[in-house]
Amino acid sequence: MTTFHLPATDRTPEVAFDFAGHHLRLSGESYPEDAASFYAPVFAALDEYLRRLDGGGACRFDIELIYFNSSSAKILMILLERLDRAAGRGAAIDIYWHYEEDDDTMEELGGEFGEDVEHARFHLVRMAPTDGG
């Protein structure tokens, strides 16, 4: 698989995994009715890709979510763990946690989640201001 893509909906984020370019991205909002079933295929694709990175690949993962609910927060925690574990096996992984200016709830959470990342490099990035949409 060279790419995995899901378009954004009102309640689910855009998933844009460019495996060939080693650039993976989640953006938009995440409060699905059933977070576990929405993310199951996303993790299936990700896990397969991360296995191929073992022993020395590199990738960049951007988390650009402007809003997610508590069920999705649990999913993000799993995501960070998977990425960190892959980094522990030798891949060079950069995780970018983007938050909107003025959204200190997201900034704080990024800081808190980032503390548990040991092997990957975790970056907190402030997004450019938007129209509030």
Partner: peptide, 22 residues
């Protein structure tokens, strides 16, 4: 959005609303 509530406050209100509803 119409009331021009700031992004920070709009996200907070929406976040509380979603958790309350769920």
């Amino acid at each position: 959005a119409v009331d021009r509530a700031g992004i920070g406050i709009a996200r907070r209100v929406f976040g509380v609303f979603v958790e309350q509803m769920q």
